[in-house]
Design a protein around this nucleic acid. Structure first.
Lengths: 230, 230, 230, 230
DNA sequence: GATGAATGAGGGTTCATTCAT
DNA sequence: AATGAATGAACCCTCATTCAT
């Protein structure tokens, strides 16, 4: 009956014969991908409705099919394009100064990033859905996890070479650092639902985390307790 | 599996050599919960089909509804019953001996547990779906995360009091340890999809993890430079 | 395939070795039929659940199938046995005295009956479901409507012969009387939902109804004062 | 009817000579409501299948949900739209001339209407299902029963004032007239199932009904038998 | 005879996908 | 290019019916 649904974006000019302003069609895919990231993040792959994605992107449902052949491929593109894009730009600020300072700077950036809603969303998707998409999983490992780990491991390696850090496996140590930040960040982000960590700020947590990490790898005059190592 | 084809009219007088079902009311809920855990883990809440859960449990679809009012409540029960059950038994072996040895023992048990398929599944569900179930999230925080953290924090606290560990926030340190193990374990479990860490064994990873953790908190005879603190 | 026909006389109890107390099995069918009448009346044929009928009859669901081959046949039996039974007993008190007084007495009984919950239920079933059961409909017409109509028409006919009533078609007039009572009674019974007739009592309505009916058929020799009105 | 077999994969490039559907959004609700009226009338609320309604409306099942949120609401709309619509138009031809003639004209229209399949259906639904829908019942009383009764009562009242009719309660008398017509019409409509009234035509019945009704309310010279008053 | 756990076809409802406009 | 009405397969859930106990 009503020929215009609620939530319809502002009606474009009723001028027909005259050249009217158009939304740039080249932005469509990005609009859709951004909207899809949000909805997939909230509802998961199966739970997300194309209707919602379309509405949030400000387009109609049919339009999605002009750019993506189906829901699953849209999901692939979300991970491929949006995720990689965002993670890349987060990993970009790699300096080459003092390893200790550089590491600290990097960890702070990492912490800020993993606390961001964007990352929380991505992490959820990766954890929950990626195992059904082997190609995407490999892609994610190759394009996201690996480079980030390389970057971090490189810093640690240089620190070891300069005598700042003790002899650890740089790759594994990098993994420990990143993973600690990641999981802990999800707990921080869920304080209100888990009713946990309600009396410390994110910043305090991060400082303790830094302290924890640096103690774990810095050189130490003498080992206190030789545990767990043979 | 079903010995009667769909749409086949009931074979009224057909003599059957084996009964179509047996009466096992005491075992049904557990069978269903176990099957549901698997399927939810593979497909998520929205993607799981009750048909699959039923088939995997060896019962018919209708039977599920004799024990659980609907899919969502089944999901709740899966998390409640299975998770709590398994996590509790994992946390049960808490000794009270030498904090260092005890901590090491606990971390090993924790590591083994988080590497198990059961935990991997649960973790996926918690990460991906729990934010839509506030009551479950709170329940999970209260019944699972909190107790495990208390246990671990207690060991650390005793280690600090005995002079084995340095002054750290026991609760946060416990969180770091657990989270490191958790996230890293998911990476280990996904070596084959991420194509990462393919040249080290789980055991080697764990040893490095222990080394990392103990260095992070053990007392250090001589002060090093205070990093990461301003 | 059903090894027991409907209307089978109550199965006598198999002698057991030990005499234990039993609920009288010969009452089962009637218990079930009574419960079924209620539930069918409330929910209709399709909407009624055997579970509810069983519960209301105080038996288990399977027990119903010991006495009735399926739901539809149970419905048939409800109409056949219970409905006819009740309608018959209501119609039974037919005297043979003064036609006018007899008619009045009969109409009063009729009015009381159509106001009863039992009749309301039956009327609902007959109106709503019977057209899908041609055999039942014919049966109902033959066993219920026809006899009642005959009875009423007989009184009218005798009244005409005696000069009390004017020349009308006794059968049609009987139909008008009964139908007026029937439909109007459903309105009375639904005062609270229709929000109608809320300021008159059932008795007042009946008196007006009597007045209406008798004016419609009595001979009218000369003008007189209105009856049944104050 | 469906030109695509179930489970057949979508024939992507299959050229179809005729379009699968046409766009008729303005007509859809009415088509669906009409079909629903029929099916609800035949099977009742619980027994009606949306599949059947859809097929009879010439649309697919999903289309119904574009216009009605669910089955129950569709039922509501059927009663609301169809009933009110038709009854309104039936009540529209209310003149203001000679009460006697007007009443006769009205009763004839009423009789024709209650004999129509549409009304028979509605009456069945109202009788059988309305008690589960209190809001609809109230609506029906307010919008249908009440206005029709008012109209009829008005004619009677004017007839009384002009001395054509005797002193009766106009509202109750109107009820008697309408109800007689209604119930009796259902009997007429069911002659073939009840095997009753098979030797008189609807027209003959109506003439007798008119005679019955007019005798009931017209002024009469003298009371024949003082009945129904004590 | 009686029970009620188990079954599975059926129906309401959703939503990815298509396509006339 | 964009729309959104229409479709129909798929899925959750119900409940009549069966049958081991």
């Amino acid at each position: 009956m009503p020929n215009r649904l609620p939530n319809t974006p502002p009606p474009r000019g009723a001028h027909r014969s005259s050249p009217r302003w158009r939304r740039l069609p080249e932005e469509r895919p990005r609009q859709i991908l951004d909207a899809a990231l949000e909805v997939f993040g909230e509802r998961g792959l199966a739970g997300a409705r194309l209707d919602d994605i379309a509405r949030r992107a400000g387009v109609s449902k049919g339009t999605i099919y002009l750019y993506f052949p189906n829901k699953e491929e849209l999901f692939r593109e979300v991970v491929r394009a949006v995720v990689v894009d965002r993670l890349r730009q987060a990993a970009a600020n790699a300096g080459t100064g003092d390893p200790v300072q550089e590491l600290e700077r990097y960890l702070r950036a990492h912490w800020d990033f993993v606390l961001s809603p964007a990352f929380q969303t991505i992490f959820k998707l990766v954890t929950g859905e990626l195992h059904n998409f082997p190609d995407l999983a490999e892609f994610y490992g190759r394009e996201v996890v690996m480079p980030a780990n390389q970057l971090l491991a490189g810093m640690i390696r240089r620190g070891i070479e300069r005598g700042d850090f003790r002899q650890v496996d740089p790759v594994l140590a990098a993994g420990f650092m990143a993973s600690t930040a990641i999981t802990h960040s999800t707990w921080c982000a869920r304080r209100h639902v888990f009713k946990l960590l309600t009396d410390v700020t994110d910043e305090q947590v991060f400082e303790q985390l830094l302290d924890f990490i640096f103690h774990a790898i810095r050189v130490t005059p003498a080992p206190a307790t030789p545990v767990g190592a043979e």
